[in-house]
């Protein structure tokens, strides 16, 4: 079964038709990249899966969004539970003004876990998974703001991993970082694939090529082409896709 699926999704911000009838699926343990020019709807589409669009006033959604086969916009689904299952990493590193340790523990604490030993184990394993443990193990009680931008972003990834979601949404996770930190994040995404299903929005075409198994090209709220990344990057079926990935757009 597909872990993520949308069926004929239409989304309006007030009068603006942001997503136009998008149907797409993503398989377990794959990385799917969403690419396209600014304002094409890729970020909006990403935010369907953890219902972050709910935070914006005047949003209307029709169609179905399924996570693990369950319609997440139905009344039976509680949005807090959904977000435990579908984690998110944002464009700019946004650690809380707390210690490194508390940042990672935050998701556990708000979900009612108080067992100290359990929290500690989970914090350590999450930091290890996010390839940050060796850099921070001696300063877990220092403020997260003392870390570099790239480290902060990996901390945010660790924070998302701590509650063990099955899906990880990433909204341009490396766009605010230097090249070295970017490649670390990319390697991390590659290694996380074995445990998580990842959907990543990126402006960087090469990044999509390097990290993803599937690529979806969005343009003006429509899904123009969706296929294996290999095929999109060597033999796209649509001229618009070809123009975009070769930099001949518009």
């Amino acid at each position: 079964m597909h872990i993520l699926e949308t069926k004929a999704i239409n989304l309006h911000y007030g009068d603006f038709h942001a997503l136009k009838g998008i149907s797409m699926v993503a398989n377990k343990n794959t990385v799917t990249a969403l690419i396209g020019p600014s304002g094409c709807g890729k970020s909006t589409y990403l935010r369907l899966f953890n219902r972050m669009n709910d935070l914006i006033d005047n949003v209307e959604i029709s169609g179905q969004v399924l996570v693990d086969g369950e319609d997440i916009y139905s009344r039976r689904v509680h949005v807090d539970d959904l977000r435990k299952k579908v984690g998110m990493v944002f464009q700019k590193p946004n650690p809380f003004p707390k210690s490194i340790y508390e940042n990672v523990a935050y998701g556990l604490r708000v979900n009612g876990i108080n067992d100290k030993k359990f929290i500690e184990e989970r914090v350590i394993s999450s930091l290890e998974q996010a390839a940050l443990w060796n850099e921070v193990k001696d300063k877990l009680n220092k403020s997260a703001f003392e870390l570099s931008g790239g480290q902060q972003q990996r901390l945010c990834i660790a924070r998302a991993l701590a509650i063990q979601p099955s899906v990880l949404l990433m909204d341009e996770p490396a766009s605010a970082l230097d090249p070295l930190s970017t490649s670390k994040i990319e390697e991390l995404i590659y290694s996380l694939k074995k445990d998580y299903t990842i959907v990543i929005v990126t402006h960087n075409m090469q990044q999509a090529g390097r990290v993803s198994d599937y690529t979806a090209f969005f343009y003006m709220g429509t899904l123009v082409e969706y296929n294996e990344t290999k095929i999109i990057f060597t033999n796209p079926q649509n001229t618009q896709t070809q123009n975009y990935i070769t930099g001949r757009f518009g």
Binding site: N50, M52, L55, D80, D81, L82, R83, K84, G87, M88, F90, K92, N94, P95, F96, P97, Y106, G107, R109, V110, N111, C156, R159, A160, I163
Partner: peptide, 27 residues
């Protein structure tokens, strides 16, 4: 208080009140 903090907290499955009490108010 930058919205990114609220979003980060909500995206971790915390409720609005938890977000306000643990993240927004301290800042």
């Amino acid at each position: 208080v930058n919205d990114t903090f609220r979003h980060a907290s909500l995206a971790l499955g915390s409720s609005k009140w938890q977000t306000v009490r643990r993240v927004v108010l301290p800042i």
